[in-house]
């Protein structure tokens, strides 16, 4: 064989972008299963339809930009965006909501900025926030959990997606909403009187969070990302909620455990803020990035107008990521101070 010239290194590690993305997809499975168990097939249908749409948009964008479609589709990043956005959407979302969200995420947030790696904002969260602002009603009506209402079957769920007018699902406020609106009951009473609350967090939500936590821990063990950002975020959230628990009074912001196991906490901590492209890169930077997101989530949850806050907190910190990176450059070998000789 003719000998070729190549520059070192000649060996390459086992990591590949596809594999990283695939692991993220796999890690969402427990969470999706639990969501489906408690809230029905809504999320699953979201994901199925959303994935198709996302791949279509991705292919379209690549074609318009004159890139090899197969090569870039195979990095699976569009699928990851589709999964993450569809998990965040309320189950039984109508097709147009999903499509609008995907267009915002894939076309606007990703390809307008130059495609994978160049997007300063988390595409899934851009899609989510655009929908939340444009269609607040659809975006804030979450299905009632199993045990409080019957969950629709699969066909019904498909119907909900494509013929939304004919679907009449039962929706309820989420536990986070209820807690925010509460001004009269002690936490203890709220828990015992409102069936929406489970053992630690919201009914069903606690298990959803635990499932995403498990998936996230597996990803850390697989070295898909480091523990720094998620742990910093969860620690900050715990600290702030403990600080303002206020002994469980009616003005309480909710217990640490409630915050950890409600809404999108774990999903956000392990699947959203760990998006490498839009987050801080250095390890110290990730600690700061995660901690600030944790703080923002708490503030927005307790003081803001939107019940859950992960999307806003993440987008705000996406802005800050480059600055955090700039100020947290690691100390290079043989240099006495960071960034200096």
């Amino acid at each position: 064989m003719a000998l070729m010239r190549l520059s070192s290194p000649h060996a390459h590690g086992p990591a590949s972008t596809q594999r990283v993305m695939l692991k993220v997809l796999v890690a969402t499975v427990p969470g999706i299963l639990i969501l489906t168990w408690f809230f029905g097939y809504g999320t699953l249908v979201n994901i199925l339809f959303g994935s198709v749409i996302a791949l279509a948009f991705e292919a379209l964008a690549l074609k318009l930009r004159g890139r090899p479609i197969g090569f870039y589709l195979s990095d699976l990043s569009a699928l990851v965006t589709a999964f993450l956005l569809c998990i965040a959407l309320p189950p039984y979302s109508p097709w147009w909501l999903i499509a609008t969200g995907m267009a915002s995420a894939i076309l606007l947030a990703k390809h307008f900025y130059g495609g994978l790696g160049y997007n300063p904002f988390n595409p899934a969260m851009v899609g989510y926030v655009i929908l939340l602002i444009s269609f607040p009603v659809q975006m804030t009506s979450w299905a009632a959990p199993r045990g409080l209402a019957a969950t629709p079957g699969f066909l019904e769920s498909v119907q909900a997606c494509f013929l939304p007018a004919t679907f009449d699902g039962i929706t309820m406020a989420t536990p986070l909403d209820v807690l925010k609106q509460n001004s009269s009951l002690l936490i203890e009473d709220l828990w015992s009187q409102n069936p929406l609350f489970g053992r630690w967090g919201g009914l069903g939500w606690e298990w959803v969070n635990i499932a995403f936590l498990a998936g996230g821990l597996w990803l850390i063990q697989q070295r898909v990302f480091t523990w720094h950002a998620p742990i910093a975020m969860l620690a900050t959230l715990t600290l702030l909620s403990a600080l303002f628990y206020d002994g469980g009074s009616s003005a309480s912001g909710g217990s640490p455990l409630f915050h950890l196991l409600s809404g999108a906490t774990m999903f956000g901590a392990f699947f959203i803020i760990t998006d490498p492209v839009s987050s801080a890169v250095s390890l110290r930077g990730r600690l700061i990035y995660g901690a600030l997101i944790g703080a923002l989530i708490y503030i927005i949850r307790v003081r803001g107008n939107y019940p859950d806050a992960v999307a806003f907190a993440v987008l705000i910190m996406n802005f800050a990521a480059p600055f955090i990176d700039y100020y947290t450059q690691p100390r290079t070998y043989g240099h006495s101070k960071r960034g200096e000789q």
Binding site: A15, T17, V20, Y72, D75, S77, G115, L116, G117, Y118, F225, T226, P276, V277, S279, V281, S282, Q329, P330, R331, T332, Y333, G334
Partner: peptide, 18 residues
């Protein structure tokens, strides 16, 4: 492929570069 800013390179760098 595109750099996804995953930071694995920074984790591997013995000179603590980025």
């Amino acid at each position: 492929q595109a750099c996804i800013r995953c930071g694995m390179c920074a984790e591997a760098c013995p000179a603590s570069l980025l």
